[in-house]
Amino acid sequence: MSEHRYGDERIVDWLNQERNWSYPRNVPYHPRSDSHGGAQCRYFVDDLLYESDAIREAAAAGELVYQEDYEVGEGGLSWNTDLVIGPPADSVQASLDGDREMAQANPAEIYLAADAKSIMTEHQKARRNRQRDINSFADIMHHHHEKALTAGILLVNLAEEFDSPLRDPDDITDHVHIERIVGEIIEMFDSINRSEGEISANLDGAGVVVVRHSNLIDDIGDSELVTEPPAPQPGDRIHYRTLVQQMADWMEARFLS
């Protein structure tokens, strides 16, 4: 068996792949695409399966499924959720020969929900929006599914310049004081009220993944995971792998014991 690689490393591989977008410019990352969030959530599923024997066994038995882009609620209290995990609404046969060891199907009940967001450029404007997104996600999810665990995953860019496909081709954004700003973003997301493992309306966990990604075509293949400060350090509750461990432990205790 090959060594497991966590989602914080694998999302960098995703950014380093050359793709042909249907947008005006072919770039690895596009803010109007949800492809990066989908990839991050699928890696999160794989990490939970790796982290927990109980989750892996339940998935192999067809007792747990995952679904992407799942609509929770209706009207003003609805949310398109990037990822949900729970027992299947209908009997399913888990396929262990595919990309992941959990079948994809609609759940009858939600055990865990995750929202994947990113701040790749215009950090000052985007950080408050992403904070509101994560808080709203937790509020709406718990309104409809009180016991569900809610996890926020945030991808943050530390590159000093970024080529946004929403700007003119020669309008490259310079990120001034980027290390300080990314540090402030991490502190902001770490300060979001947490459930601390109890059933509450608060967010259950958050993980920040810091990358250095310019989005410049000439730099494809050069993106990297940032592990030194200001990125979260191993053991920090805002570290991505701490989030994985917490969600696996709490999911076992709340739903699989």
Rank of each mutant, 00 (worst) to 15 (best):
M1Q: 01
M1F: 06
H4F: 10
R5S: 12
G7I: 09
G7N: 07
E9P: 09
L15T: 01
L15P: 00
N16C: 14
N16H: 05
Q17M: 04
E18N: 07
E18S: 06
Y23F: 03
V27H: 00
P28H: 04
S33R: 09
S35H: 09
S35G: 13
G37H: 13
G38Y: 02
C41V: 03
L48Y: 15
E51P: 01
E51I: 14
S52G: 09
D53M: 05
A54W: 08
I55V: 15
A60F: 03
G62D: 13
Y66C: 13
Q67H: 13
E71Q: 12
E71M: 13
V72R: 12
G75Q: 07
G75R: 10
G75Y: 03
T81V: 14
P88N: 14
P88H: 04
D90P: 00
S91M: 12
L96P: 11
D97S: 03
D97C: 01
G98W: 06
D99M: 08
R100M: 08
E101D: 04
M102W: 03
A103H: 13
N106K: 08
E109T: 07
Y111W: 07
A116S: 07
K117I: 01
S118H: 11
I119T: 09
T121Q: 12
Q124S: 15
A126D: 04
R127Y: 15
N129E: 15
Q131S: 08
R132Y: 11
D133A: 09
N135S: 10
E146S: 13
K147Q: 06
L149W: 13
T150M: 10
A151N: 09
A151T: 06
G152H: 01
L155N: 07
L155G: 00
N157E: 06
A159Y: 06
D163G: 03
S164K: 06
L166D: 10
L166M: 06
D168Y: 12
D168A: 13
D171F: 03
I172G: 05
D174G: 01
D174E: 12
V176D: 03
I178C: 01
V182K: 12
I185C: 02
E187L: 13
E187K: 12
E187W: 00
M188Y: 00
D190F: 00
I192Y: 01
R194T: 08
S195K: 05
E196P: 02
S200Q: 08
S200P: 03
G205A: 14
A206F: 00
G207F: 03
V211T: 14
R212V: 09
H213N: 10
S214P: 04
N215R: 08
N215W: 01
L216W: 08
I217P: 01
D218T: 11
D218P: 02
D219A: 14
L225V: 02
L225R: 06
L225M: 03
P230M: 02
P232C: 05
P232V: 05
P234E: 06
H239P: 02
Y240H: 11
T242K: 11
T242E: 14
M247A: 10
D249T: 05
D249M: 04
R254Y: 12
F255T: 03
L256M: 02
L256R: 02
